[in-house]
């Protein structure tokens, strides 16, 4: 029996990759589990002379209520395209230091193709539709991170 539970969490605290994987792997008889973890990286654009210092911290703002709905809607659209087992999406908010875990997408399915594709689909839509905004701190200055056209292009290939 394939479980089709969707778990969406928006939280300040960190998450345990191993525990999240175990939960996905143990919940069903799925033959494949694909997990993606996003980390806080140095967002400083080397082309921008205005941000010479490395990024030391990110602050993640979100729209409580809408964020969870947007993530659930993205997972539902993935389920409409591929036969999926349990799916977990976790996104952290608040202040996050460099290299911290920021996002987790875990997808279980009977076979790897659906799990790989759905994980990528969920991330591509998360980056363009889920209401999160990053503010970076570098050299004591804070500035909002600009959206990237490449993220829109990644999302459009699913249309």
């Amino acid at each position: 029996m394939v479980q089709t539970q969707t778990e969406i969490r928006v939280q300040t605290q960190d998450f345990d990759l191993g525990a999240e994987y175990q939960q996905l792997a143990s919940q069903s008889d799925c033959g494949a589990v694909v997990t993606f973890t996003g980390l806080v990286r140095d967002y400083t654009d080397p082309q921008k002379v205005t941000s010479p210092a490395p990024v030391s911290e990110l602050f993640l703002e979100h729209y409580p209520g809408m964020t969870e709905k947007a993530l659930a809607s993205i997972v539902e659209r993935a389920r409409a395209r591929w036969p999926l087992g349990p799916v977990t999406v976790i996104h952290r908010v608040g202040a996050l230091p460099l290299n911290a875990q920021i996002v987790f997408v875990g997808v279980a399915s009977a076979h790897r193709q659906a799990a790989f594709s759905a994980a990528q689909f969920i991330m591509d839509y998360l980056k363009t539709e889920a209401p999160f905004w990053k503010k970076e701190t570098s050299g004591g200055q804070t500035q909002w991170v600009d959206a990237r056209e490449s993220d829109q292009q990644e999302r459009r290939r699913w249309e």
Binding site: H62, H91, A130, W144, D146, A147
Partner: peptide, 10 residues
């Protein structure tokens, strides 16, 4: 109603 700039999560 909510107005906001393009999203930058993930």
């Amino acid at each position: 109603v909510a107005l906001f700039p393009p999203v930058t999560g993930g």
